[in-house]
Amino acid sequence: MATNRDGSRRAIIVGAGIGGLATATALAQCGWQVEILERAAEVGEAGSGLTLWANGLRALDRIGLGAQVREQAMAETDAGIRNPVGRWLTRTDTAEMARRYGEVVMIHRYDLFDIMRRALPPDAVRLGCAVTGVEHRGDRVEVTHSGGVSCADLVVGADGIHSAVRKAVFPGAPEPRYAGYTAWRTITAHPVPELHDGGQTWGHGERFGIIALPDDRVYMFGVANSAPRLRGPDGEYAELRRRFGTWHDPIPALLDAVDPAAVLRHDIYELPPLSSYVLGRIALLGDAAHAMTPNMGQGANQGLEDAVTLAALLDRIESVPTALAEYDLVRRPRTQDIARRSHRIGVAAHVSSAPVVLLRDALLRLTPGRAMLRSFAPALTWQPLA
């Protein structure tokens, strides 16, 4: 049987990303036995930074990891949008944002993975375990994978935008769609302690972001309109320099501090809205359910919200299918709304027509700071279920 002899219930989480690790931690704290199946050979992702907003930090607080994360993170000090010559189009009062909604911190993605992985038993994660099938068998769920077959009372698909669980459970679900732009991500190879101004810079169909990290290194991302799978003939670092190397300071100097081999490139895809995140005893979570463009920085944060909400509902509702139905009712409208907001920001950020760019930039300069702050409220005012 899927349920253990000691009466505890068993969950299989597919995917050891941020949402999957948070789900396993939250369920374990509620008395579930958890097993994570991860197709990769290791847990974690290096080479990029991550913004944890107030809502994501509240989710981490709920599973007891918020303090550890804050110890290894750094509070955001600058925010806003400039044009390529360095003129500020809009600035965000980060102190007022923190007062209204809570703090925002930056952390190395690898450090967050390390904190979350250490919160679980050493044998909780099975690496190199690719899932090939998921199917209900009466009051349990059977998962077929490269290591054999496992059964559980609950299966959570937290396996990303190309989710094997989603494909198995909802074979007619829409496929991910290309957002129209590609992204480069990298971290400086050495500390850059004199960096003072971060934020984003918006150009014509291109933008660049700068985020200071706790060890004085700098996380950067460049985004540009592009056909999918189109690669620069001289490599990704050369393409990054070609596009952004003449933009305002400190972008050229920061690019000089990058190891060319450490530049990551990913085409940006998003998932069209699903009609449900659940089926019986199977739930989708994070990018598997609602992969969104990164324009609001909410992808990981929404996965954290999903995890603690799912665990809270399973803790208060005895019936797994009933708890999952409530999870779908609570999470799907919110995450799909935030995905739409993120999509709209991407549309504005990536206009390329010169007259439209001039209009966009003028509207940004004319928008009052308090209106910009209010625009964060739908994402940042979230609170965990009591």
Rank of each mutant, 00 (worst) to 15 (best):
G209M: 09
L112M: 04
L60D: 06
G245R: 04
P294W: 05
G133V: 04
Q200K: 13
L329P: 01
R365S: 13
S353T: 12
R334W: 12
I18L: 09
G138Q: 04
P174H: 05
I36S: 05
R137D: 03
S150C: 08
R99D: 10
R217Y: 09
V278D: 00
S319R: 06
M116H: 07
Y269W: 11
A257G: 05
R137M: 07
L195Q: 08
Q383D: 04
D256Q: 11
G148I: 01
L195A: 02
M292V: 02
A28S: 14
H196D: 08
M97P: 13
G20A: 01
P176H: 06
M106Q: 14
G66W: 10
T367K: 10
G299P: 12
E38P: 12
E326P: 01
A238L: 07
A54W: 09
V34L: 10
V169C: 09
R241E: 07
V357Q: 08
E103Q: 14
A158Y: 06
V169G: 01
N55Y: 08
P355G: 05
D328L: 13
Y101H: 10
A130H: 14
N225K: 15
L254T: 09
D328P: 02
R334S: 06
Q33N: 10
G147M: 01
R265F: 07
W32C: 10
A348R: 14
M292T: 09
R374F: 06
V156N: 05
Y181W: 11
L279F: 04
P214G: 04
R185M: 06
P193F: 15
D93S: 11
N55Q: 14
L52I: 09
H190S: 14
H343G: 02
P233Y: 08
G148C: 02
I317R: 00
E35V: 13
T51M: 07
D216N: 15
H204Q: 15
I282G: 00
Y101E: 07
R370T: 12
Y110S: 15
L373E: 05
R166I: 13
A349N: 15
D315A: 15
G303I: 05
I63S: 02
T322A: 14
P121E: 06
G31F: 12
G199W: 09
Y110M: 15
G86N: 03
G19F: 02
P193M: 15
A227Q: 12
L284P: 09
S375P: 11
Y277F: 15
A16M: 09
Y219S: 08
M296V: 05
A164W: 00
G148E: 07
R140I: 06
H290F: 06
G128I: 01
L230E: 14
A261S: 13
A289K: 00
H196V: 10
L385W: 10
I268Q: 03
T182G: 03
P250M: 00
I251L: 00
L154C: 06
H108G: 03
